[in-house]
């Protein structure tokens, strides 16, 4: 526990949605999620829109208040911090946002935006220009950009400034919420490499949220796959991509276009993810699952450990693991 940079236990976020004049319904955006992140590690979180990825990110940085569960940063339970105590802990967990056109104040120069973070760190005014220059060079931007406004920067440049701003407070964890999704593919690779370099140098841990599996395959050490507010599969990145256990994971991976795997049969997912306010009984994935058995319609599968660092929430996958050999080649 003590060596984890970030530990999340049973995180639950429910939204109450009003319906009509009276009555409301509860949307279980995040429903009992466990995540752990070691120093210098990258955990990828993947899932379709509405699977609760971004809600996790927002509750980790206290923009959304969770209904249940605990968030532990280092040794401190930060779940219910408020006021000044919360402000002190905030800088240990930073976020790089998806939209590079909205995450920087259009009325502040790059120098002021990064300087604001340096002021939070308590750096004296006369030392800030030097530190701004150092941070800009850290994200491979010329110092001349410091006087620019965000409107004068490209998307990739803005995202680098966002990264520099996050680094300015020397955090333990940086949450990248679709941080490269809005960028061109070529620029995306540059930014991802930059993030990796920074991790090597500073030992910062990343929680990398993305709907794009090829991005996660590139950056993540471990990956958690989410479906309707729950983690359905979790494992080391290499193994998970080489041998996905959950039918949903397989469908997601099959949907990624691949040069080498041309000609392999594409697995198509029918239908839409269910309404989180009204999830189906049993396994929430069963209406779309090609392998659903009777049990899936009745009993909700729990996340079960099936190997070192690997766990899956699927009756079929767990069963095949328990009876060896039939597991190696799950029926397709």
């Amino acid at each position: 526990m003590s060596d984890a940079a970030l530990a999340v236990r049973g995180l639950t976020v429910h939204f109450r949605v009003r319906r009509g004049l009276v009555g409301s319904r509860v949307v279980r955006a995040v429903d009992g999620v466990d995540l752990a992140l070691g120093p210098g590690e990258t955990l990828g979180v993947a899932g379709e829109s509405g699977s609760g990825k971004s809600t996790i990110a927002r509750s980790l940085v206290h923009l959304t208040r969770p209904n249940g569960g605990t968030i532990t940063l280092g040794e401190t339970d930060v779940t219910s911090l408020r006021g000044a105590a919360l402000r002190r802990y905030r800088r240990r967990m930073q976020m790089v946002y998806q939209d590079p056109y909205d995450s920087l104040d259009p009325r502040m120069t790059v120098r002021d935006a990064i300087g604001e973070a340096l002021a939070v760190r308590g750096l004296s005014r006369d030392r800030r220009p030097g530190e701004v220059a150092r941070l800009l060079s850290r994200v491979n931007l010329p110092d001349a950009l410091a006087a620019r406004y965000p409107g004068q920067l490209s998307g990739g440049q803005r995202q680098r400034v966002s990264i520099a701003r996050a680094l300015a407070v020397e955090p333990d964890v940086i949450i990248c919420d679709e941080a490269v999704a809005a960028l061109d593919v070529s620029i995306r690779a540059q930014v991802l490499n930059l993030l990796k370099d920074i991790q090597r140098d500073t030992g910062v841990a990343y929680l990398f949220i993305s709907h794009d599996l090829s991005t996660l395959r590139f950056v993540a050490d471990r990956v958690a796959i989410m479906y309707v507010g729950r983690v359905v599969e979790h494992g080391p990145s290499l193994e998970l991509f080489a041998e996905p256990l959950h039918p949903y994971t397989r469908a997601l991976i099959a949907a990624v276009p691949s040069v080498t795997a041309r000609g392999t049969k594409r697995l198509h997912l029918a239908g839409e993810p269910p309404d989180p306010a009204n999830p189906p009984t049993g396994c929430p994935f069963h209406p779309r699952c090609p392998e659903a058995i009777d049990e899936c319609r009745r009993v909700r599968p729990e996340l079960t450990v099936v190997g070192p660092g690997r766990s899956v929430a699927c009756h079929v996958a767990v069963r095949s693991f328990r009876s060896p050999r039939s597991a190696a080649e799950p029926s397709r």
Partner: peptide
């Protein structure tokens, strides 16, 4: 709800400062 206000909150900037620096100028 703009991300740059969220970003300032996440940094640990005080509410009064956020209003003065990121809200009033707009």
């Amino acid at each position: 709800e703009r991300e740059f206000v969220n970003a300032a909150r996440t940094l640990g900037v005080r509410h009064a400062t956020i209003v003065r620096r990121h809200v009033l100028p707009h």
